[in-house]
Write a protein that binds this DNA or RNA. Structure first.
Lengths: 244, 244
DNA sequence: AGCCCCTATTTGGCATGCAAAATGCCCATA
DNA sequence: TATGGGCATTTTGCATGCCAAATAGGGGCT
Protein backbone atom coordinates (compact mmCIF):
# COMPACT_ATOMS: atom_id res chain seq x y z
CA UNK A 1 0.00 0.00 0.00
CA UNK A 2 2.84 2.21 -0.69
CA UNK A 3 2.10 4.39 -3.66
CA UNK A 4 -1.62 4.72 -4.00
CA UNK A 5 -2.59 4.59 -0.36
CA UNK A 6 -0.11 7.23 0.67
CA UNK A 7 -1.23 9.33 -2.24
CA UNK A 8 -4.92 8.94 -1.49
CA UNK A 9 -4.40 9.62 2.20
CA UNK A 10 -2.36 12.71 1.45
CA UNK A 11 -4.95 13.97 -1.00
CA UNK A 12 -7.80 13.49 1.45
CA UNK A 13 -5.78 15.01 4.26
CA UNK A 14 -5.02 18.07 2.18
CA UNK A 15 -8.66 18.50 1.28
CA UNK A 16 -9.58 18.24 4.94
CA UNK A 17 -6.93 20.69 6.08
CA UNK A 18 -7.80 23.05 3.27
CA UNK A 19 -11.32 23.14 4.61
CA UNK A 20 -12.99 21.55 1.60
CA UNK A 21 -15.46 19.92 3.93
CA UNK A 22 -17.41 21.51 6.71
CA UNK A 23 -16.73 20.00 10.12
CA UNK A 24 -19.30 17.43 11.07
CA UNK A 25 -19.81 16.36 7.48
CA UNK A 26 -20.25 12.64 7.12
CA UNK A 27 -17.79 11.18 4.67
CA UNK A 28 -19.34 8.28 2.79
CA UNK A 29 -16.69 5.93 1.61
CA UNK A 30 -18.33 5.68 -1.80
CA UNK A 31 -18.18 9.39 -2.47
CA UNK A 32 -14.68 9.60 -1.03
CA UNK A 33 -13.64 6.74 -3.29
CA UNK A 34 -14.87 8.30 -6.50
CA UNK A 35 -13.72 11.69 -5.29
CA UNK A 36 -10.17 10.41 -4.95
CA UNK A 37 -10.49 8.15 -7.95
CA UNK A 38 -9.72 5.00 -6.00
CA UNK A 39 -11.61 1.94 -4.91
CA UNK A 40 -13.83 1.72 -1.86
CA UNK A 41 -11.26 -0.51 -0.21
CA UNK A 42 -8.52 2.03 -0.53
CA UNK A 43 -10.78 4.90 0.47
CA UNK A 44 -11.58 2.99 3.63
CA UNK A 45 -7.88 2.51 4.35
CA UNK A 46 -7.19 6.19 3.85
CA UNK A 47 -10.09 7.20 6.08
CA UNK A 48 -8.86 4.78 8.70
CA UNK A 49 -5.45 6.43 8.60
CA UNK A 50 -6.89 9.92 8.96
CA UNK A 51 -9.06 8.68 11.75
CA UNK A 52 -5.91 7.59 13.58
CA UNK A 53 -4.42 10.99 12.88
CA UNK A 54 -7.41 12.57 14.54
CA UNK A 55 -8.82 14.43 11.56
CA UNK A 56 -11.83 12.16 11.33
CA UNK A 57 -14.02 10.63 14.01
CA UNK A 58 -15.73 7.32 13.50
CA UNK A 59 -19.05 6.36 15.01
CA UNK A 60 -19.71 2.62 14.87
CA UNK A 61 -22.10 1.62 12.12
CA UNK A 62 -22.51 5.23 11.18
CA UNK A 63 -19.33 5.98 9.28
CA UNK A 64 -16.92 8.82 9.86
CA UNK A 65 -17.40 12.53 10.16
CA UNK A 66 -15.01 15.41 9.73
CA UNK A 67 -13.71 16.37 13.15
CA UNK A 68 -14.53 19.84 14.33
CA UNK A 69 -11.71 21.48 16.23
CA UNK A 70 -12.47 24.15 18.76
CA UNK A 71 -9.96 26.92 19.24
CA UNK A 72 -9.27 25.53 22.69
CA UNK A 73 -8.38 22.14 21.29
CA UNK A 74 -5.95 23.70 18.84
CA UNK A 75 -4.45 25.86 21.57
CA UNK A 76 -4.10 22.77 23.75
CA UNK A 77 -2.32 20.88 21.02
CA UNK A 78 0.04 23.76 20.32
CA UNK A 79 0.82 24.00 24.00
CA UNK A 80 1.55 20.29 24.19
CA UNK A 81 3.84 20.52 21.21
CA UNK A 82 5.62 23.41 22.88
CA UNK A 83 6.11 21.46 26.08
CA UNK A 84 7.43 18.48 24.15
CA UNK A 85 9.83 20.62 22.14
CA UNK A 86 10.98 22.26 25.36
CA UNK A 87 11.69 18.80 26.72
CA UNK A 88 13.52 17.99 23.49
CA UNK A 89 15.96 20.89 23.72
CA UNK A 90 16.57 20.18 27.39
CA UNK A 91 17.49 16.61 26.56
CA UNK A 92 19.55 17.76 23.62
CA UNK A 93 21.49 20.02 25.97
CA UNK A 94 21.96 17.26 28.52
CA UNK A 95 23.08 14.86 25.85
CA UNK A 96 25.19 17.23 23.81
CA UNK A 97 25.30 17.81 20.08
CA UNK A 98 27.35 15.63 17.80
CA UNK A 99 29.51 17.42 15.26
CA UNK A 100 27.22 16.80 12.31
CA UNK A 101 24.12 18.12 14.05
CA UNK A 102 26.04 21.09 15.38
CA UNK A 103 27.13 22.04 11.87
CA UNK A 104 23.65 21.49 10.50
CA UNK A 105 22.08 23.76 13.10
CA UNK A 106 24.68 26.41 12.43
CA UNK A 107 23.91 26.26 8.73
CA UNK A 108 20.15 26.53 9.25
CA UNK A 109 20.57 29.46 11.62
CA UNK A 110 22.76 31.13 9.03
CA UNK A 111 20.18 30.66 6.31
CA UNK A 112 17.45 32.03 8.55
CA UNK A 113 19.60 35.02 9.35
CA UNK A 114 20.16 35.57 5.67
CA UNK A 115 16.48 35.40 4.82
CA UNK A 116 15.67 37.72 7.68
CA UNK A 117 18.25 40.24 6.48
CA UNK A 118 16.75 40.27 3.01
CA UNK A 119 13.31 40.80 4.48
CA UNK A 120 10.50 38.29 4.43
CA UNK A 121 8.13 40.09 2.12
CA UNK A 122 7.38 37.93 -0.89
CA UNK A 123 5.52 34.64 -0.80
CA UNK A 124 8.65 32.87 -1.95
CA UNK A 125 10.56 34.29 1.01
CA UNK A 126 7.78 33.27 3.33
CA UNK A 127 7.94 29.73 1.98
CA UNK A 128 11.69 29.65 2.45
CA UNK A 129 11.37 30.93 6.02
CA UNK A 130 8.72 28.35 6.82
CA UNK A 131 10.84 25.55 5.38
CA UNK A 132 13.91 26.57 7.32
CA UNK A 133 11.89 27.04 10.48
CA UNK A 134 10.35 23.57 10.17
CA UNK A 135 13.70 21.99 9.48
CA UNK A 136 15.22 23.69 12.50
CA UNK A 137 12.49 22.41 14.78
CA UNK A 138 12.87 18.93 13.33
CA UNK A 139 16.60 19.04 13.97
CA UNK A 140 16.15 20.13 17.55
CA UNK A 141 13.85 17.20 18.18
CA UNK A 142 16.28 14.91 16.41
CA UNK A 143 19.09 16.24 18.55
CA UNK A 144 17.28 15.10 21.66
CA UNK A 145 17.83 11.54 20.54
CA UNK A 146 14.45 10.70 22.03
CA UNK A 147 12.38 8.49 19.79
CA UNK A 148 9.13 8.87 21.71
CA UNK A 149 9.45 12.62 21.63
CA UNK A 150 9.67 12.55 17.86
CA UNK A 151 6.61 10.35 17.61
CA UNK A 152 4.53 12.49 19.94
CA UNK A 153 5.50 15.76 18.33
CA UNK A 154 4.80 14.54 14.83
CA UNK A 155 1.42 13.29 16.00
CA UNK A 156 0.54 16.73 17.31
CA UNK A 157 1.95 18.40 14.21
CA UNK A 158 -0.49 16.62 11.95
CA UNK A 159 -3.32 18.58 13.51
CA UNK A 160 -4.45 21.77 11.80
CA UNK A 161 -2.44 24.87 12.75
CA UNK A 162 -0.25 22.93 15.16
CA UNK A 163 2.67 22.21 12.88
CA UNK A 164 5.64 24.58 12.94
CA UNK A 165 5.06 24.96 9.21
CA UNK A 166 1.68 26.51 9.96
CA UNK A 167 3.26 29.86 10.58
CA UNK A 168 1.12 32.91 10.41
CA UNK A 169 2.36 36.13 8.92
CA UNK A 170 0.69 39.31 9.97
CA UNK A 171 -0.14 41.04 6.73
CA UNK A 172 -2.16 43.81 8.22
CA UNK A 173 0.66 45.14 10.31
CA UNK A 174 3.80 44.38 8.38
CA UNK A 175 6.02 46.04 10.94
CA UNK A 176 4.56 43.83 13.62
CA UNK A 177 5.07 40.74 11.50
CA UNK A 178 8.74 41.56 11.06
CA UNK A 179 9.16 42.13 14.78
CA UNK A 180 7.75 38.68 15.44
CA UNK A 181 10.19 37.08 13.03
CA UNK A 182 13.13 38.89 14.60
CA UNK A 183 12.08 37.79 18.08
CA UNK A 184 11.53 34.25 16.83
CA UNK A 185 14.99 34.14 15.31
CA UNK A 186 16.56 35.48 18.48
CA UNK A 187 14.89 32.60 20.32
CA UNK A 188 16.32 30.10 17.85
CA UNK A 189 19.82 31.49 18.26
CA UNK A 190 19.65 31.47 22.03
CA UNK A 191 18.16 28.02 22.20
CA UNK A 192 20.94 26.57 20.10
CA UNK A 193 23.51 28.50 22.13
CA UNK A 194 22.03 27.13 25.35
CA UNK A 195 22.15 23.60 24.02
CA UNK A 196 25.80 24.05 23.06
CA UNK A 197 26.55 25.39 26.54
CA UNK A 198 24.75 22.36 28.02
CA UNK A 199 22.32 24.70 29.73
CA UNK A 200 19.36 22.36 29.67
CA UNK A 201 17.09 24.39 31.84
CA UNK A 202 17.72 27.59 29.94
CA UNK A 203 17.13 25.94 26.59
CA UNK A 204 13.91 24.47 27.91
CA UNK A 205 12.65 27.73 29.33
CA UNK A 206 13.42 29.67 26.20
CA UNK A 207 11.80 27.09 23.96
CA UNK A 208 8.70 27.06 26.14
CA UNK A 209 8.44 30.81 25.83
CA UNK A 210 9.12 30.60 22.11
CA UNK A 211 6.26 28.16 21.72
CA UNK A 212 3.99 30.25 23.88
CA UNK A 213 4.53 33.40 21.84
CA UNK A 214 4.01 31.49 18.64
CA UNK A 215 0.82 29.97 19.97
CA UNK A 216 -0.48 33.34 21.11
CA UNK A 217 0.14 34.84 17.71
CA UNK A 218 -1.70 32.00 16.05
CA UNK A 219 -4.67 32.20 18.38
CA UNK A 220 -4.85 35.96 18.09
CA UNK A 221 -4.97 35.64 14.35
CA UNK A 222 -7.66 32.99 14.59
CA UNK A 223 -9.87 35.48 16.34
CA UNK A 224 -9.19 37.97 13.56
CA UNK A 225 -9.33 35.87 10.41
CA UNK A 226 -8.82 38.84 8.11
CA UNK A 227 -5.13 38.91 8.80
CA UNK A 228 -4.78 35.18 8.62
CA UNK A 229 -2.44 33.99 5.94
CA UNK A 230 -1.45 30.43 6.49
CA UNK A 231 1.81 29.40 4.98
CA UNK A 232 1.62 26.71 2.29
CA UNK A 233 -2.09 27.30 1.98
CA UNK A 234 -2.50 24.64 4.57
CA UNK A 235 -5.10 24.59 7.26
CA UNK A 236 -7.21 26.89 9.34
CA UNK A 237 -10.34 26.81 7.27
CA UNK A 238 -13.75 25.59 8.35
CA UNK A 239 -12.16 22.83 10.40
CA UNK A 240 -11.71 25.19 13.28
CA UNK A 241 -14.65 26.86 14.90
CA UNK A 242 -14.93 29.07 17.96
CA UNK A 243 -17.71 26.95 19.44
CA UNK A 244 -17.23 23.56 20.96
CA UNK B 1 -19.72 -4.31 12.27
CA UNK B 2 -17.06 -2.24 13.87
CA UNK B 3 -17.13 -4.99 16.43
CA UNK B 4 -15.03 -7.37 14.38
CA UNK B 5 -12.32 -4.87 13.51
CA UNK B 6 -11.92 -3.74 17.07
CA UNK B 7 -11.88 -7.33 18.16
CA UNK B 8 -9.34 -8.43 15.60
CA UNK B 9 -7.10 -5.45 16.33
CA UNK B 10 -7.29 -6.10 20.05
CA UNK B 11 -6.51 -9.77 19.56
CA UNK B 12 -3.51 -9.06 17.39
CA UNK B 13 -2.31 -6.32 19.72
CA UNK B 14 -2.53 -8.65 22.70
CA UNK B 15 -0.57 -11.32 20.88
CA UNK B 16 2.08 -8.76 20.00
CA UNK B 17 2.31 -7.37 23.51
CA UNK B 18 2.34 -10.85 24.98
CA UNK B 19 5.39 -11.56 22.88
CA UNK B 20 3.84 -14.25 20.71
CA UNK B 21 5.98 -13.06 17.83
CA UNK B 22 9.67 -12.34 17.83
CA UNK B 23 10.55 -8.77 16.94
CA UNK B 24 11.46 -8.42 13.31
CA UNK B 25 9.10 -11.19 12.24
CA UNK B 26 7.31 -10.39 9.03
CA UNK B 27 3.57 -10.60 9.44
CA UNK B 28 1.95 -11.87 6.25
CA UNK B 29 -1.59 -10.71 5.99
CA UNK B 30 -2.77 -14.15 4.92
CA UNK B 31 -1.40 -15.90 7.97
CA UNK B 32 -2.62 -13.09 10.22
CA UNK B 33 -6.06 -13.40 8.65
CA UNK B 34 -6.44 -17.09 9.25
CA UNK B 35 -4.73 -16.75 12.59
CA UNK B 36 -7.39 -14.29 13.72
CA UNK B 37 -10.12 -16.06 11.83
CA UNK B 38 -11.00 -13.04 9.75
CA UNK B 39 -10.69 -12.06 6.11
CA UNK B 40 -7.61 -10.63 4.48
CA UNK B 41 -9.32 -7.27 4.24
CA UNK B 42 -9.94 -7.09 7.94
CA UNK B 43 -6.49 -8.36 8.76
CA UNK B 44 -5.03 -5.52 6.72
CA UNK B 45 -7.21 -3.01 8.55
CA UNK B 46 -6.07 -4.35 11.89
CA UNK B 47 -2.43 -4.35 10.84
CA UNK B 48 -2.81 -0.82 9.57
CA UNK B 49 -4.18 0.22 12.95
CA UNK B 50 -1.32 -1.39 14.83
CA UNK B 51 1.11 0.18 12.43
CA UNK B 52 -0.29 3.57 13.40
CA UNK B 53 0.02 2.61 17.04
CA UNK B 54 3.68 1.90 16.44
CA UNK B 55 3.70 -1.81 17.19
CA UNK B 56 4.33 -2.70 13.56
CA UNK B 57 6.54 -1.13 10.95
CA UNK B 58 5.74 -1.25 7.28
CA UNK B 59 8.29 -1.44 4.49
CA UNK B 60 6.76 -0.57 1.12
CA UNK B 61 6.04 -3.60 -1.04
CA UNK B 62 7.53 -5.79 1.62
CA UNK B 63 4.77 -5.97 4.20
CA UNK B 64 5.02 -5.27 7.89
CA UNK B 65 7.30 -6.54 10.56
CA UNK B 66 6.96 -6.69 14.31
CA UNK B 67 8.68 -3.65 15.77
CA UNK B 68 11.62 -4.28 18.01
CA UNK B 69 11.80 -1.93 20.98
CA UNK B 70 15.09 -1.20 22.59
CA UNK B 71 15.16 -0.52 26.30
CA UNK B 72 16.13 3.05 25.51
CA UNK B 73 13.05 3.54 23.37
CA UNK B 74 10.82 2.25 26.14
CA UNK B 75 12.58 4.43 28.69
CA UNK B 76 12.14 7.40 26.36
CA UNK B 77 8.44 6.75 26.00
CA UNK B 78 7.96 6.36 29.74
CA UNK B 79 9.81 9.61 30.29
CA UNK B 80 7.63 11.40 27.76
CA UNK B 81 4.51 10.06 29.40
CA UNK B 82 5.82 11.28 32.74
CA UNK B 83 6.46 14.75 31.38
CA UNK B 84 3.00 14.88 29.84
CA UNK B 85 1.35 13.74 33.05
CA UNK B 86 3.36 16.30 34.96
CA UNK B 87 2.02 18.93 32.59
CA UNK B 88 -1.46 17.53 33.13
CA UNK B 89 -1.44 17.90 36.89
CA UNK B 90 0.02 21.39 36.60
CA UNK B 91 -2.81 22.41 34.32
CA UNK B 92 -5.33 20.67 36.55
CA UNK B 93 -4.02 22.73 39.45
CA UNK B 94 -4.14 25.95 37.47
CA UNK B 95 -7.64 25.18 36.28
CA UNK B 96 -9.03 23.77 39.51
CA UNK B 97 -11.04 20.64 40.14
CA UNK B 98 -14.76 20.58 39.70
CA UNK B 99 -16.77 19.00 42.49
CA UNK B 100 -17.40 15.73 40.70
CA UNK B 101 -13.74 15.14 39.85
CA UNK B 102 -12.70 16.14 43.36
CA UNK B 103 -15.01 13.54 44.85
CA UNK B 104 -13.92 10.92 42.37
CA UNK B 105 -10.24 11.47 43.16
CA UNK B 106 -10.98 11.29 46.85
CA UNK B 107 -12.77 8.02 46.38
CA UNK B 108 -9.97 6.49 44.33
CA UNK B 109 -7.37 7.58 46.86
CA UNK B 110 -9.49 6.03 49.59
CA UNK B 111 -9.71 2.74 47.74
CA UNK B 112 -5.98 2.71 47.12
CA UNK B 113 -5.37 3.39 50.80
CA UNK B 114 -7.65 0.54 51.68
CA UNK B 115 -5.93 -1.90 49.33
CA UNK B 116 -2.55 -0.82 50.64
CA UNK B 117 -3.67 -1.37 54.23
CA UNK B 118 -4.78 -4.90 53.46
CA UNK B 119 -1.48 -5.59 51.78
CA UNK B 120 -0.96 -6.17 48.08
CA UNK B 121 0.02 -9.80 48.17
CA UNK B 122 -2.39 -11.84 46.08
CA UNK B 123 -2.78 -11.56 42.32
CA UNK B 124 -6.31 -10.31 42.83
CA UNK B 125 -5.05 -7.48 45.03
CA UNK B 126 -2.41 -6.66 42.48
CA UNK B 127 -5.06 -6.44 39.78
CA UNK B 128 -7.16 -4.19 41.96
CA UNK B 129 -4.20 -1.94 42.67
CA UNK B 130 -3.33 -1.72 39.00
CA UNK B 131 -6.90 -0.88 38.08
CA UNK B 132 -7.17 1.85 40.68
CA UNK B 133 -3.79 3.22 39.75
CA UNK B 134 -4.72 3.40 36.08
CA UNK B 135 -8.02 5.05 36.84
CA UNK B 136 -6.32 7.63 39.02
CA UNK B 137 -3.88 8.54 36.29
CA UNK B 138 -6.70 8.76 33.77
CA UNK B 139 -8.61 11.07 36.08
CA UNK B 140 -5.65 13.34 36.58
CA UNK B 141 -5.26 13.71 32.84
CA UNK B 142 -8.98 14.26 32.51
CA UNK B 143 -8.82 16.92 35.20
CA UNK B 144 -6.37 18.91 33.11
CA UNK B 145 -9.16 19.48 30.62
CA UNK B 146 -6.53 19.31 27.90
CA UNK B 147 -7.66 17.24 24.95
CA UNK B 148 -4.27 17.06 23.24
CA UNK B 149 -2.67 15.87 26.44
CA UNK B 150 -5.12 13.00 26.63
CA UNK B 151 -4.42 12.04 23.03
CA UNK B 152 -0.64 12.13 23.44
CA UNK B 153 -0.61 10.20 26.66
CA UNK B 154 -2.87 7.49 25.36
CA UNK B 155 -0.66 7.19 22.30
CA UNK B 156 2.37 6.61 24.50
CA UNK B 157 0.46 4.26 26.76
CA UNK B 158 -0.24 1.86 23.94
CA UNK B 159 3.46 1.03 23.76
CA UNK B 160 4.70 -1.97 25.69
CA UNK B 161 5.54 -1.28 29.32
CA UNK B 162 4.64 2.39 29.05
CA UNK B 163 1.07 2.24 30.29
CA UNK B 164 0.42 2.96 33.97
CA UNK B 165 -1.25 -0.44 34.04
CA UNK B 166 2.09 -2.02 33.22
CA UNK B 167 3.14 -1.91 36.83
CA UNK B 168 5.88 -4.15 37.99
CA UNK B 169 5.82 -5.82 41.35
CA UNK B 170 9.05 -6.90 42.87
CA UNK B 171 8.50 -10.49 43.85
CA UNK B 172 12.04 -11.23 44.81
CA UNK B 173 12.16 -8.63 47.54
CA UNK B 174 8.64 -8.36 48.85
CA UNK B 175 9.60 -5.78 51.42
CA UNK B 176 11.04 -3.59 48.70
CA UNK B 177 7.89 -3.98 46.59
CA UNK B 178 5.75 -2.83 49.46
CA UNK B 179 7.97 0.17 50.07
CA UNK B 180 7.56 1.18 46.46
CA UNK B 181 3.79 0.99 46.70
CA UNK B 182 3.76 3.08 49.86
CA UNK B 183 5.95 5.73 48.24
CA UNK B 184 3.81 5.67 45.14
CA UNK B 185 0.67 6.19 47.15
CA UNK B 186 2.24 9.05 49.07
CA UNK B 187 2.97 10.66 45.72
CA UNK B 188 -0.63 10.26 44.65
CA UNK B 189 -1.92 11.83 47.84
CA UNK B 190 0.43 14.77 47.65
CA UNK B 191 -0.23 15.35 43.96
CA UNK B 192 -3.96 15.53 44.53
CA UNK B 193 -3.40 17.77 47.55
CA UNK B 194 -1.23 20.07 45.49
CA UNK B 195 -3.84 20.28 42.77
CA UNK B 196 -6.49 21.17 45.35
CA UNK B 197 -4.21 23.86 46.77
CA UNK B 198 -3.67 25.18 43.25
CA UNK B 199 0.04 24.55 43.59
CA UNK B 200 0.69 23.85 39.95
CA UNK B 201 4.44 23.77 40.14
CA UNK B 202 4.47 21.46 43.13
CA UNK B 203 2.02 19.07 41.56
CA UNK B 204 4.11 19.04 38.41
CA UNK B 205 7.37 18.44 40.22
CA UNK B 206 5.98 15.65 42.32
CA UNK B 207 4.37 13.95 39.35
CA UNK B 208 7.62 14.16 37.41
CA UNK B 209 9.45 12.50 40.27
CA UNK B 210 6.67 9.94 40.61
CA UNK B 211 7.03 9.06 36.95
CA UNK B 212 10.80 8.95 37.20
CA UNK B 213 10.79 6.51 40.09
CA UNK B 214 8.26 4.34 38.36
CA UNK B 215 10.32 4.35 35.18
CA UNK B 216 13.48 3.47 37.06
CA UNK B 217 11.81 0.54 38.73
CA UNK B 218 10.58 -0.73 35.40
CA UNK B 219 13.93 -0.38 33.72
CA UNK B 220 15.75 -2.00 36.63
CA UNK B 221 13.43 -4.94 36.40
CA UNK B 222 13.96 -5.17 32.66
CA UNK B 223 17.63 -5.71 33.26
CA UNK B 224 16.78 -8.45 35.74
CA UNK B 225 13.93 -10.33 34.07
CA UNK B 226 13.71 -12.91 36.83
CA UNK B 227 11.83 -10.55 39.09
CA UNK B 228 9.67 -9.24 36.31
CA UNK B 229 6.00 -9.86 36.86
CA UNK B 230 3.95 -7.67 34.60
CA UNK B 231 0.49 -6.94 35.82
CA UNK B 232 -2.32 -8.29 33.67
CA UNK B 233 0.16 -10.51 31.89
CA UNK B 234 0.59 -7.75 29.41
CA UNK B 235 3.83 -6.81 27.72
CA UNK B 236 7.52 -7.00 28.24
CA UNK B 237 8.23 -10.18 26.39
CA UNK B 238 10.40 -10.62 23.32
CA UNK B 239 9.26 -7.26 21.98
CA UNK B 240 11.87 -5.54 24.04
CA UNK B 241 15.53 -6.26 23.57
CA UNK B 242 18.62 -4.74 25.11
CA UNK B 243 20.24 -4.18 21.73
CA UNK B 244 19.26 -1.35 19.43
C1' DA C 1 31.94 -18.67 -4.87
C1' DG C 2 29.39 -15.25 -7.58
C1' DC C 3 25.83 -14.23 -10.89
C1' DC C 4 21.68 -14.64 -13.53
C1' DC C 5 17.27 -16.15 -14.63
C1' DC C 6 13.08 -18.26 -13.77
C1' DT C 7 9.31 -19.40 -10.76
C1' DA C 8 6.42 -19.06 -6.73
C1' DT C 9 4.86 -16.27 -3.26
C1' DT C 10 3.31 -12.00 -1.45
C1' DT C 11 1.92 -7.48 -1.56
C1' DG C 12 -1.01 -3.77 -3.25
C1' DG C 13 -5.13 -2.77 -5.18
C1' DC C 14 -9.87 -3.36 -7.55
C1' DA C 15 -14.65 -4.90 -8.11
C1' DT C 16 -18.28 -7.09 -6.30
C1' DG C 17 -21.57 -9.56 -3.15
C1' DC C 18 -24.12 -9.61 0.96
C1' DA C 19 -26.13 -9.17 5.74
C1' DA C 20 -27.09 -5.88 9.16
C1' DA C 21 -27.66 -1.41 10.58
C1' DA C 22 -29.04 3.15 9.71
C1' DT C 23 -31.49 6.56 7.05
C1' DG C 24 -35.18 8.50 4.83
C1' DC C 25 -39.82 8.59 3.31
C1' DC C 26 -44.61 7.93 3.13
C1' DC C 27 -48.62 7.74 5.20
C1' DA C 28 -51.86 6.97 8.91
C1' DT C 29 -53.32 8.86 13.10
C1' DA C 30 -54.21 12.01 16.81
C1' DT D 1 -50.50 20.44 11.87
C1' DA D 2 -47.52 17.51 14.51
C1' DT D 3 -46.46 12.70 15.61
C1' DG D 4 -45.15 8.27 14.98
C1' DG D 5 -45.00 3.69 12.88
C1' DG D 6 -43.69 0.87 9.07
C1' DC D 7 -41.45 0.07 4.75
C1' DA D 8 -37.92 0.80 1.10
C1' DT D 9 -33.42 2.55 0.23
C1' DT D 10 -28.88 3.61 1.33
C1' DT D 11 -24.70 2.83 3.73
C1' DT D 12 -21.71 0.40 6.48
C1' DG D 13 -18.94 -3.66 7.70
C1' DC D 14 -16.94 -7.50 6.17
C1' DA D 15 -15.87 -11.35 2.87
C1' DT D 16 -14.35 -13.16 -1.49
C1' DG D 17 -12.13 -13.52 -5.81
C1' DC D 18 -9.16 -11.62 -9.06
C1' DC D 19 -5.12 -9.37 -11.00
C1' DA D 20 -0.61 -6.77 -11.81
C1' DA D 21 3.70 -5.79 -9.96
C1' DA D 22 7.25 -6.48 -6.80
C1' DT D 23 9.80 -9.52 -4.02
C1' DA D 24 11.91 -13.71 -2.46
C1' DG D 25 13.66 -18.07 -3.29
C1' DG D 26 15.88 -21.69 -5.85
C1' DG D 27 18.38 -23.70 -9.12
C1' DG D 28 21.83 -23.69 -12.78
C1' DC D 29 25.61 -21.57 -15.13
C1' DT D 30 30.11 -19.51 -15.27
Amino acid sequence: MSIALEEATTALRCRLLAGDFDPGTKLREISVAEDLGVSRTLARLAMSALEHEGLLTREPNRGSRVKRFSIKEIADAIEVRGELEAMAVRQAAERGLDAAMDARLEQILGSLEEVLAQGVTTDAMRDRWVDLNSTLHDCLVEASGNWALKVSISQMSRLPLVSPSALIFDRKDHENGHRQLVASHADHVEIVAAIRARQGHRAEARMREHAFMNARNKILNLADPETMDLARALPGGPLIRPDK
